[in-house]
Amino acid sequence: MGRFVVRRVASTIGVLIAISIFTFLIFQAIPNGDPALRLAGRTATQTQIEAIRHTWGFDKPIYIQYLRTMEKIFDGSVVSYNQGFNVEEEIRRDLPVTASLALGAGFIWLALGIVFGALSAWRAGRWLDRGLTVLSMIGVSMPVFFLGAVLAYYVGDKWGVLPPGDYVKLTEDPWGWLEHLVMPWFALSVLFIGVYSRVLRSTILDNINDDYVRTARAKGLSERQVMIRHVLRNSLIPIISLWGLDFASVIGGGAILTESVFNLHGVGQYAAQSVQALDIPSVLVITMFGAFTVVLLSAIVDVVYAALDPRIRL
């Protein structure tokens, strides 16, 4: 186990470096374009562009540019030129919003995904399975911003059941926090519930034919014990690791559509607004932040996975 962790950490560092280079290349070195011009945004003056060219080192060789960029990201001194804010301060301010969204939604989609998937597999081929299959199909076919907009309009504006958007701080108004997040949680969860229930269903149906399940029956376990202790328990292992990755991606700005449509000032919405303003420095930092989050959390997921499934510790 120890050696496994060490190896995983080493490969994670490698991927992080690769990501930083690749992200740098996307923003600073894509052919046909002056990176300074791109960073400066649409409203920049010539002197501003010159200043950017100098501070980011665009008049230097490309590896210096890369190092300069990384240095600026790590000492937290990236400033967006359109809005004039420090990008990393903005991200730090937005992170609790994104975390609130991710935690609630992650819990909902994991719980419902498992329940629906298990029910679906248990009743495979019957009407309950068919009904859940239809629902999950609709779920995975639904763009979250469309679902969010329609929910916000009907549940929020028209019927006034829940507030249609915005974020309220947990520390200021816990009830308001919950009330404002329920709809985004569900909107974001729908896709994942669909995916998870399908994955769990097919994993269970796969495992059900395995030899060790036959052994469990031969031991005299009841069908319920066989299903819960052996089939479900083993089938949940891939679901848990899938959850870790998706959760990481949501924390890292992957919930960009949900945050935008419900006007939650999280990392994702920050990215979306920066895109609309063509504010490249912030998109650069958020993209790198997002990928870093995914890589770091997925390394943790792998270690947890190895703890759950001893076979892959080799």
């Binding site: 996307i26 990215a271 995914v294």
Partner: peptide, 24 residues
């Protein structure tokens, strides 16, 4: 590497840089 990026983040990152000046 590509897999590490949240799909939409990589999408907008590429979209926004490429749209500005196209791809050559």
């Amino acid at each position: 590497l590509i897999w590490a990026y949240p799909v939409y983040l990589l999408g907008i990152a590429l979209g926004v840089t490429l749209q500005l000046q196209g791809l050559d």
